[in-house]
Amino acid sequence: MSETGSPPRAILRDSHASRLIQAVAGLLDRPMAWIQRAVGGRGMAYVFLAPNILFFGLFVFLPIGINMAMSLTGGTNLFLSERPFIGGDHYRGLMQCGSYLDPASCREDHFWKGVSNTLKFTLFQMVAMVGTALVTALVLNRKIRGRGFFRAVYFFPVLLSPVVVALIWKWILQRDGLLNGAITLAGGEKILFFVEPGWAMFWAVFVSVWAHMGFYTLILLAGLQAIPADLYEAAEMDGTKPMRVLTRITLPLLWPNLVVVLVLVLIKAVQTFDEVFVLTGGGPGTATLMVVQYIYETAFANQVQNFGLAAAASMLLGSLLFALTMLQLWIARRKAA
């Protein structure tokens, strides 16, 4: 820290907080010095990393390993030692299909229905999410009255738990919900949103966009605000029409942020579970059943709990997410460079 940036020494010396910090630091001084003598200066880096590595190992890497082992074993027992090794049978079972385009022809038809629904959901959600977030960011980037208020309003749903979001919309959309109340009041007939497959998927996408759009709007807004204002003034002097400003200046300069948003939306969409599960329960039938819901039900909700099959499906999904995350990191690094 620079001289000017640090607080005056007198204040630091006198504050209670600093005395407490100094006392704690004093207590740690001796053991730390002892550890440093034992492991050397370079080794200290690993000492400081150790707690985090342990935490990650215990709650991330170990479960991945157990999951992998689960996917290669059979039976209904939860303990690995009691489960017989069956190799790639679960994977083969999941991939066994007459045609991958027709989930009904697959041995694990619900898995493939989940894949198909997740793909549809992802595609619709990506277009709707990026489109809405972009338009909202463009509007909020203008000097409009109450801009701060609107920025907060659009961000608030992001703070809500997915279950709360889904419950709110369930109350609005159910047979005797708010929306149907309004429709009947206007003289229309009630629509059974959760009974018609098309409507159910539409609302699953809509609610997801409503809940998360604020976050992506924020990323895009940050990108828009990083575009120097004088570029727009130069464009104005150059006689550029607004649509051309958007397509030739704003969007190309926003492109790195847009790509980050696209990949993040993609990853989130593939992972979708809680909101849609609470909202539609995957129904009607399997119309909004997502892959993650299939994994959850196969492992925990079905009468016969097939941990191995669920683990194999989650390994496949995990591989896809890993690839997408690598893509996102690559893009982010390229942007930073």
């Binding site: 120097p228 004088d230 570029l231 003034e233 130069a234 030739r248 200046i249 300069l253």
Partner: peptide
């Protein structure tokens, strides 16, 4: 412009 305002 002072900053040149070239389209990067």
């Amino acid at each position: 412009f002072q900053s040149y305002a070239l389209y990067p």
